[in-house]
Structures are given as structure tokens and as C-alpha cells.
């Protein structure tokens, strides 16, 4: 069991004041910033990132496992020309990736896209056709978006390196 020192002499106290100000000045002179300059820079996410999900309609066998495992009731099965296919409601999806993991034929795949915008709630419901299209990249602001990759740095915390 430890105790911290209670009474400290005024000189040590002054030293600690100076230390605090000094630490502040140190970062003022040599700032370490970890801001990602979004949207000019956009992050490339590591493999295995659980972003939005894409369906491969031809591969799907309609086993309903994905709908059964879905914790948020986001994925439902719909019958289309006699074949059962999943459809997803992104308004409910929690991106746990269970459906991707449980699919016995790998008909579902995680993409690295997570920054999408929709104008209304109905658009959030993806029917099998829309679900099996490649997901659009976010719109760029007329300017080229630099793709960067986050790397952990010993001195600066996180640095963003351009992704080739």
C-alpha cells in the first residue's frame, strides 16, 4: 500500500509549477499533432476492418444463417424469383461482422467503406440488388483526396503516411 507525499516545500511546489509550464511550452514549440485532415486526407483502413457489407448475389445459397445471427435485426431474408436472399437495413446495422463470419459460402464481404451519407431512411434499406453492388466511394470535394494510412509512431503517436 502506497501513500503520496503530503506536505511539500514551497520550492518544490514552484518547481512543479515551472515544470507544468515548461511541459506546455515544450509542446507549443514542438507540437505533436494527430489530426487527420479529413476530407482532404482519407484513411485507408487495415484489412479486416468491419465496414459496410457487400453481398455476392450469385454465391449466396439462401441459408438464412446471416439473418439468424444478426443481433440487430438488420438483416432479413427476402424471396426473389424463388431464391432467398438477404437484404440489409443500415439504419440498424451495428457492423459486428457476424453475418460475414457465419456465411458458409463467403457470399458476404466486409468493405473498408464506413463514411457514407444518405438523404433519407428508406435509402438505408438495401435490397439484394443494391446490396450486391460495389459500394460507392464517398464524394470528393472537387479536389483529389490523399489516401493515407495511420501508423503508430514512437514519438508522435500517430502519423499518417501516404498510401501507395
Amino acid at each position: 500500500m502506497k501513500e503520496y507525499p503530503k506536505k511539500e516545500n514551497p520550492f518544490k511546489l514552484l518547481g512543479q509549477h515551472l515544470e507544468a509550464i515548461g511541459t506546455g511550452l515544450k509542446y507549443l514549440v514542438k507540437p505533436t499533432r494527430i489530426t487527420l485532415m479529413y476530407p482532404e486526407e482519407s484513411m485507408v483502413l487495415p484489412t479486416g476492418y468491419r465496414g459496410m457489407i457487400r453481398l455476392y448475389k450469385d454465391v449466396c445459397i439462401g441459408c438464412t444463417l446471416c439473418a439468424m445471427v444478426c443481433p440487430a435485426d438488420a438483416m432479413k431474408m427476402v424471396t426473389e424469383e424463388g431464391k432467398k436472399l438477404p437484404m440489409i437495413n443500415y439504419g440498424r446495422c451495428v457492423f459486428c461482422g457476424f453475418c460475414v463470419d457465419i456465411c458458409p459460402v463467403d457470399a458476404l464481404k466486409e468493405t473498408g467503406v464506413h463514411d457514407a451519407a444518405f438523404t433519407n431512411r428508406r435509402e438505408l434499406i438495401f435490397d439484394p440488388d443494391k446490396f450486391s453492388q460495389d459500394f460507392d466511394q464517398p464524394p470528393t470535394m472537387d479536389k483529389p483526396v490523399r489516401k493515407v494510412r495511420a501508423k503508430i509512431d514512437e514519438k508522435k503517436g500517430i502519423v499518417y503516411e501516404p498510401d501507395d
Binding site: A67, D73, M77, V78
Partner: peptide
């Protein structure tokens, strides 16, 4: 609770 099948 909801079922897992929906109609189009």
C-alpha cells in the same frame, strides 16, 4: 420481436 423473413 421480429421474424427474419420479409416480403419484398
Amino acid at each position: 420481436t421480429e421474424g427474419i423473413f420479409v416480403d419484398r
